[in-house]
Design a protein around this nucleic acid. Structure first.
Lengths: 206, 206
DNA sequence: AAAAAATTTAACCAATTGGTTAAACCTTTC
DNA sequence: GAAAGGTTTAACCAATTGGTTAAATTTTTT
């Protein structure tokens, strides 16, 4: 069954599922083999060790999503437009891969150095470009002065929390699955409003 | 050494450190015993199994922080005041326990049911109270109408992301430890501003 | 059809790990 | 000083798990 898909891909898909749900430590090679419809021997025949397999899956996960997402911030585009597009893409991405953010955060926390050499420099580049735009806009007086870290942390925090905290939020606020989905959709509109309000507000607090 | 501290407490402190840094799956009983300055036999003599020990540590973690923190939202107090106090406490709490948020989120994700019976109902109560206040203020026209989930998710997301994403943010934005701490301090002031701006802004977007 | 590569089977190994046991040794309590 | 409980030591067990091996079988390539 599904013979047209290469075994390597079947393994990678299976591994991705298991790693994302169980984490690197919790994942079992046997479970990955089962889910891929093969046996452990063949699994090791393709990817010599658990570490190598994980490395591959993790990097694929990042590379297949990171560039497109953060690329938005690097485009030549008005700030507000960037903001809306980024949030839309980011929330949608997480809606389709709910386990991803926690997975990424966990594994980066477990091994911060590994990451930076690979994709860190690209993101840094984007951050720098964004920084210039923020400075220029602030000089024109169209937005308040702000550091890129502050802005990106705010945007991502607003988007990511509802997803990673879903198991807490749903019972505490008594949300049905449908309620929760509405809530997520609301974020797509509201997060840009929150951020844009903040950026363009002239009043000093208090 | 430190003989006045009961062995039970020494174990719990050690276990807390190990669990928080390694997670439930990654933690090793031997490491906990070592860090507590005792041996594995005694460890099992006090807490029969890893599961029981973890249960105890996890609940202590929640119960020693949750009520005080979310209690703020339940107090009789102007919204803006709640907002500022909550953020101040929350960020400070995480500054002193940087591994806690990721730990809590992970373990709740691993086992959502276990939590709700214990502290979920209290938080629900607080959420309800907050909901009434939000409705009353919105009726008076002092803030925009908003659901408690939306508000709390926004506040917590803005506070928690800088902490859990620290290993990403620091290298990507080239922050020194000092820079990062300044950044965190900035959050204490800025998060309430972001939220309050959003709540009190009358303009419909675009 | 022959050669090469992919896949299965099944047994096996070594290391780790949660947990146990039993005897001895301290320390405190009564 | 006897009893009881806390603590150590050290060996041990069973289960899990990452990884290996070798031979047999199937599929693909040439």
């Amino acid at each position: 069954m599904t013979k047209d898909v290469s075994t390597e891909r079947k393994i990678l898909e299976a591994a991705r599922e298991v790693f994302i749900q169980q984490g690197m430590v919790g994942a079992r090679m046997q479970e990955i083999a089962d889910k891929a419809g093969i046996n452990k021997a063949l699994l090791h025949y393709y990817f010599r060790s658990k570490d190598l397999l994980f490395e591959r899956v993790f990097m694929e996960t990042l590379q297949s999503n990171g560039p497109a997402l953060f690329g938005i911030l690097g485009k030549e585009m008005p700030l507000k437009e960037k903001l809306m597009q980024f949030v839309e893409h980011y929330v949608e991405l997480m809606k389709n891969n709910p386990f991803m953010p926690l997975f990424v955060i966990n594994e980066i926390s477990r091994n911060p150095e590994k990451l930076f050499g690979k994709i860190g420099s690209q993101v840094s580049q984007v951050a720098m470009g964004l920084g210039l735009q923020l400075k220029a806009e602030a000089a024109k007086g169209t937005i308040r002065p702000i550091e890129p870290v502050d802005l990106i942390s705010s945007i991502m925090g607003l988007c990511v929390f509802p997803v990673i905290a879903k198991p807490i939020l749903r019972p505490v606020f008594g949300l049905s699955e449908e309620d929760y989905n509405k809530f997520l959709e609301r974020r797509k509109k509201e997060v840009p409003v929150i951020i844009w309000n903040y950026l363009t507000d002239k009043s000093t607090n208090e």
